[in-house]
Design a protein around this nucleic acid. Structure first.
Lengths: 202, 202
DNA sequence: CTTTGCATTAACCAAATGGTTAAACAACTT
DNA sequence: AAGTTGTTTAACCATTTGGTTAATGCAAAG
């Protein structure tokens, strides 16, 4: 999130804000221009079209959401610590941009092909796959309960991501204010970690 | 999902389909008319405006997603069975309309106020609250590990709902086809149940 | 058969929206 | 001072889109 003052950057920042909040179809070029404090023609001058501009913001967002999932499972900690660290790490990083998960999920749903083009740039989560293999080994050795690593991984991601995707729903249903939600998320870092470790106990 | 052939019903069905797929801002009245096989003017004849039509579809969807969460925790089974049954039940019911979770989450995010109006019609999940209280009791008695019931509830909901919200992402990243995803969901009913019970073991 | 009242349609309308353009501006070169 | 080049703007344009309307169809009531 650099904040240089070049017009190009101002546009990207404004586009990020508006697209994340309203999605591709809900965003208005005029609103992005207003948010950037510049003339609408500049958007096209620098980025040609709404779609091109969106593509940039979207690619960035996918990277922030998925790229991190892989990065977080790097390192050579023992598996227990790695799980706990990864969860803490991931929840913290999403906290910094709570709109991100739902934005990415929604736009992928609108046009799944867009995701494919993102994956041509890199391999499919090597660290995550390595970690899943490691879990399978530990299960074979009897150190953890025998579980499908894919189901486990998706469960962990679910528990980390979903609360953010459902934030307005949760705050509405359980009558939390912004403060209570922040506290809930802080708690959650600890909860999910121990919840998962306990569930893996043989 | 009645399928009577009155024009009014055809419109609602078409609106459901289009709104769920594309969201409020992405849906076009013309597309809804086409999907229903009728003239666009009929939409306004029967439902006045896009917003009014959307409101109906949205209210229905909220009911399907949240109403069921409460209904599922009804009954007087012992808590272990209740958890397992609720999970199986909930995943099954979402399977029938996989677009639903993301649709509701996205639209609530766009306009959280819309949710509030839904809750004037009924109390806030009495069964779910009762069940959370029951869990707290069991924890006090030492029958389950001491956990925050709210964190637990949200974890269960996360693990059930998120895979559907992220379906195109998961099938993309883990290279599943529609068939493999169906199998994954079938497996998941069992996995989440035992995962949760294990995590609650004292 | 004609009237009455709802259902349906094609044509139309005004506002919104993504995109373009020609002119003004500003900084830098010659 | 006069070009030269990249930046910015106001005005404009074509299309899309939600919404309306006047005319037509049509079945039941008289």
């Amino acid at each position: 999130m650099q904040t240089t003052n070049t017009t190009e950057q101002q546009i990207i920042e404004a586009a990020r804000k508006i697209f994340m909040q309203r999605g591709l179809s809900g965003a208005r070029m005029q609103d992005i221009a207003d948010a950037a404090g510049i003339n609408k023609a500049m958007l096209h001058y620098y980025y040609r079209s709404k779609d091109k501009l969106f593509e940039i913001v979207f690619a960035e967002a996918v990277q922030a959401l998925l790229g991190r999932v892989n990065a977080i499972f790097a390192g050579d900690m023992p598996w227990k610590e790695k799980i706990v660290a990864a969860i803490d790490n991931y929840i913290t990083s999403i906290s910094e941009n709570p709109y991100l998960p739902l934005f990415v999920l929604h736009e992928i749903n609108q046009n799944p092909d867009r995701l494919v083009s993102q994956f041509l740039h890199g391999p499919l989560f090597p660290n995550l796959r390595a970690f899943m293999a490691e879990l399978a080994e530990e299960a074979a050795k009897g150190n953890i309960r025998k579980v499908d690593p894919l189901q486990l991984m998706i469960s962990i991601i679910s528990m980390c991501v979903f609360p953010f995707a459902a934030k307005p729903l949760l705050t509405g249903v359980f009558q939390m204010d912004a403060n209570a939600f922040g506290k809930f998320i802080e708690e959650r870092k600890k909860f999910v970690g121990s919840f998962v470790l306990n569930a893996l106990e043989p």
